[in-house]
Design a protein around this nucleic acid. Structure first.
Lengths: 129, 129
DNA sequence: GATAAAGCTTCCAGCTACCGGAAGGTCAAG
DNA sequence: CTTGACCTTCCGGTAGCTGGAAGCTTTATC
């Protein structure tokens, strides 16, 4: 299967698929004409990657998950640990974003938003107490 | 004022301050020995940038905010619009992260997390229905 | 059979917002 | 006078791609 078809099946752009070969995540065979030739297994891996990436796992985490995916003797605890770590990471980001949101909302709420120059947002950014 | 002192006052690393000069955000004078020489105004701008960046504004947004900061005739509405847009952006990120978190929590909750290979997380990533 | 369009190849550059490190000049202290 | 702290520039790397150029091959159309 050529890269275009693999792209369609995995819902990944060809550029990304080539990149995944560059970083040795999915290494397809080559046809005689030099075209990449993706097997069903390759496409499974691509789909796996697409899904894992969309869930926020980094490439390195994907690499690890992929090796577990293909390890018949994996311990599900190892997979779960990665997922839980990712959840904690998300929680940290959530807290930070909520804090930012609160600060910005507060600032915006104090700003008249008219055509006059006086602006509490700018004042805050400038460090005016 | 040398870059080290400016760094301390603005709470930005020297590397970052040099970078801000590269991208023409804050362009200090030069002393005779070639050292960067930061004025009080420069340091104000650096502090402004430090604060705006920490609130999640991109460099380009900071550039815009900085120009408003220094525009005597600015309309506070312009500043407020940027802040509100940033809040919307944060809201979008929050929703996405919450959705990811829910999915991952669900997956992890269904995984035994033992030493056996059977793993619903992997199954999901693999696309098994 | 000619031609054009689509699809493939490689390689190089760029995106964000810096950070690390090398090689070397300058300055203040002991 | 030397040591160490500070400064300079420049180069490369980070994450995860994306865009584009130059040049094949294959497919579709006339």
């Amino acid at each position: 299967m050529n890269i275009g078809a693999a792209a369609e099946q995995s819902n990944l752009p060809p550029k990304t698929i080539r990149y995944y070969e560059d970083i040795e995540l999915v290494r397809p065979a080559r046809s005689e004409n030099g075209y990449r030739d993706y097997s069903e297994t390759d496409v499974h891996r691509l789909k796996f990657l697409q899904r894992a990436r969309s869930l926020g796992f980094t490439i390195d985490e994907c690499r690890l998950l992929l090796s577990l995916y293909e390890d018949e003797h994996r311990a599900s605890a190892d997979v779960k640990a990665i997922a839980l770590a990712k959840i904690e990471e998300i929680d940290r980001k959530l807290i930070e974003l909520q804090s930012l949101r609160a600060t910005l909302t507060n600032l915006a709420g104090n700003c008249h938003g008219d055509d006059k120059p006086n602006c509490p947002i700018i004042d805050d950014l400038a460090g005016d107490k």
